[in-house]
Design a protein around this nucleic acid. Structure first.
Lengths: 236, 236
DNA sequence: CGTGCAGTGCTTGTATACAAGCACCTGTCG
DNA sequence: CGACAGGTGCTTGTATACAAGCACTGCACG
């Protein structure tokens, strides 16, 4: 979707920061100083600032003029919105599956599922496979590009999911659900595929409330977002 | 969705330019010079530039480093993507309608439909009512916030629609379809509502190919987007 | 006449300087 | 001892200067 594949420092910084936010390396609520980021990245404020503006439009960062920029807390309402959007789009994509599936994509998905079953799998590796799997399913329906929009809108959902998997749930459960969806798709059983997909997506979603009770400080509390100035560190 | 309600010149410029692009006041392919815009708006390049970056992420502007920025041509593929996303989300929203509808929203929609039937209605007025109508329907299903995401993603679709209505199609047809959807919703006939909605959205969509044959220069041609430097005007 | 090549003027990308404002800290005064 | 006022250091917003590069123009040369 994004048109600038040109390599500019703004783009690389944007991707880097976005990755750090989504992986919780930059946790919700963390303060982001344009000056600090610029210094640590070895560039000026300009590209850093422009990256933060993009992240703010993604809803991953909140910018308070003259106060500061912060990694946005996970907003349960936005998580629910992202879930609704994702379910609507992915189910509709299943309905749009052609009778003859693209063999290369099917093979790719099969390979992907094999990797998901590996025992030694880091969280990040699993998420990467998960993303590729769902994206691949939408490509089968001919709407691979729409995944970009869904992916952009589900930032909050992704962070909540990572919180969930940080706890104790094994990715194996989700891997099995992926396999079930895939089997239904290749066998042409659309009704089963829809049911399996819906079950899968909602299983992912249901974990969030549990996490919220565990780590309420990572979630937004209603509408009163409280920006907290980072303590000034004095060196002497 | 956007978090900065603070009044900054960047935000106002962004909204203004976005409006101008969506209303075709800035036609597809038009060159956007940061310097010219800054001069005409009476500000520096910085806020203008940041606005263009936001518009680029929306897919409404293409920025070619060291070459120029241009209002993106209407990409039929992106139009189709937006159509798919919109249909998926709006139909899913109908499925999520509660048994008891919010009376105030229903009244608002009824009033909206009344205005749509007025004879003397400018194109912009109709589009505003159309937006509010579809947004209201999603609010009935409890997913009003998702409309923001859909609205952001359907920039290409909106411009194509405007091109379509610029020709000769009367908004009255669409107004009647809106009425049909609304009647089905309030009567609780979900199946009819779904059918009517799908018919409506696809009717809107079907016009695009016709427009494309009329004004091919407004559409993107495959992948080879050709940025054309604006002729230099010499004053002497 | 055709071709190549430097000049010129625009473009966006980046860096830096200045402006405006919030929050905390601290000293002073009641 | 408490409260208020101003200093201080950070924040982001905006303006400006410089850097790098593309594309066209027009002249020179074969």
């Amino acid at each position: 979707m994004a048109q600038t594949n040109r390599r500019t420092s703004r783009r690389s910084i944007y991707l880097k920061l976005r990755q750090m936010v989504l992986t919780l390396e930059l946790p919700p609520g963390a303060a982001l100083s344009e000056n600090e980021l610029a210094a640590s990245l070895g560039v000026s404020r300009t590209p850093v600032r422009e990256s933060l503006i993009l992240l703010a439009q993604d809803g991953l960062v909140q910018i308070f003029p003259k106060i500061g920029s912060f990694v946005s807390r996970v907003d349960p309402a936005q998580v629910a919105d992202a879930q609704f959007l994702r379910e609507a789009v992915e189910l509709a994509s299943l309905d749009a599956l052609p009778s003859e599936l693209d063999a290369s994509v099917v093979a790719e998905l099969r390979d992907n599922l094999g990797r998901q079953q590996r025992t030694r799998l880091s969280l990040e590796e699993f998420f990467e496979l998960d993303e590729a799997f769902h994206h691949g399913l939408m490509r089968l329906g001919g709407h691979g590009n729409v995944w970009t929009t869904v992916a952009a809108a589900k930032g909050h959902l992704d962070r909540a999911r990572r919180l969930g998997l940080h706890e104790n749930v094994s990715p194996a459960v989700f891997a099995d659900q992926h396999q079930e969806i895939f089997d239904a798709v290749v066998s042409g059983d659309l009704a089963l595929a829809r049911t399996a997909m819906r079950t899968h997506l909602r299983a992912v979603f249901s974990d969030i409330e549990r996490i919220r009770t565990h780590s309420p400080e990572l979630f937004a509390t209603g509408s009163s977002s409280v920006p907290v100035r980072r303590n000034v560190v004095v060196w002497e």
